[in-house]
């Protein structure tokens, strides 16, 4: 495994941009910020695979795009498979001497749908087969590009176009989300030696996790929470603040799994009540106390599952 060059402070982050100004993402877009930070961390020798989703549609409108490095579209279904093909093509062409390239960083930038829902099969197979690709799941917790429909990552209680609240279904979305880290890095994909969660609210941590994932020979997985002003219904200037609040309330946990060993990136001393997070977003505006309590109980159970020792707010 190559050693990743770590970034210690914001000031140390590379100046050079590879995700440039000029894209049709919404003002305050969390996934766009993630893209910029990831491109910055990975640098020039990088190829992005962009399956359909916000980061395809909003970035490439009108036959153009904001990347200074090679980028290709993939279907929402097949980022993992296209990434696999690119990886093995480079390996074989380099081996045969057909090209002089250095093996590139290959990064699949898939949304939650393209990673854990319709794209799950291809992502899983890529990780099983051990291709040297970093699979990034930029998670804005919905199918946002199509106008905010529920995905497996949409939290319990969130309103989306497909899960509107009403007298018969007062809590809006009824299911609790999938756990991608458990799916990809919980031992079910032995070739994945590095996986991490990250957030756009913690940019240095995110960039270092990108570099660690890329330095890892073989597949790596990064699950990045990306608040979405449009989908979550909050003012565009609060994207980072809400990302932080998610971590402070236990709606998002920041950790790495390296060779199966868990390492906390941010260890909250105390979790704030989940209600503080819910209040910031219109998608939760309809929730009644019993629904909030149900979410708090879910957070508290997650804390236990993840083995985090932290005082918990009471689940009413």
């Amino acid at each position: 495994m190559a050693t990743a060059e770590m970034i210690k402070t914001i000031a140390q982050a590379p100046d050079k941009e590879y995700y440039l100004p000029g894209h049709r993402t919404c003002a305050g877009c969390g996934p766009a910020l993630a893209y910029r930070l990831i491109a910055k961390a990975s640098g020039k020798n990088t190829i992005f695979v962009g399956p359909t989703g916000c980061m395809y549609v909003a970035n490439t409108s009108y036959a153009c795009g904001p990347w200074a490095v090679p980028w290709t579209h993939a279907q929402i279904t097949n980022a993992g498979a296209v990434g696999s093909g690119i990886a093995e093509a480079f390996k074989m062409m380099i081996k045969k001497g057909k090209i002089k390239d250095e093996y590139p960083n290959i990064i699949c930038m898939a949304g939650d749908g393209g990673s854990i829902d319709i794209g799950l099969q291809a992502a899983s197979a890529m990780m099983y087969r051990g291709h040297d690709v970093l699979f990034v799941m930029y998670d804005n917790e919905s199918y946002a590009n199509t106008g905010i429909q529920t995905s497996p990552m949409t939290p319990y209680g969130a309103a989306t176009m497909f899960t509107p609240p009403g007298p018969e279904i007062p809590e809006a979305k009824k299911f609790f989300p999938k756990d991608p880290m458990a799916i990809f890095c919980g031992g079910g994909h032995p070739a994945v030696k590095y996986g991490a969660t990250a957030s756009i609210a913690y940019p240095v941590d995110l960039m270092n996790k990108v570099r660690k994932g890329l330095a890892q020979e073989g597949p790596a997985f990064l699950h990045v929470q990306c608040p979405c002003p449009k989908g979550w219904t909050f003012p565009a200037n609060r994207t980072v603040e809400i990302g932080r609040l998610a971590v402070e309330t236990g709606m998002w946990f920041m950790y790495e799994l390296e060779d199966g060993v868990k390492k906390w990136s941010i260890l909250p001393k105390q979790l704030k009540p989940v209600e503080e997070y819910l209040q910031t977003q219109g998608r939760f505006a309809h929730l009644k106390p019993e629904h909030v309590a149900k979410l708090q109980a879910w957070v508290n159970a997650r804390v236990q599952t993840l083995g985090l020792e932290v005082p918990l707010p009471p689940a009413r």
């Binding site: 097949n78 993992g80 093909g85 480079f90 062409m93």
Partner: peptide
């Protein structure tokens, strides 16, 4: 591949890489 959809996608990716 994990299915035919993946087969064709893998070949597509490889071809874009120049293989």
């Amino acid at each position: 591949g994990e299915g035919e959809h993946a087969q064709f996608s893998i070949a597509h990716g490889a071809s874009m890489a120049g293989a």
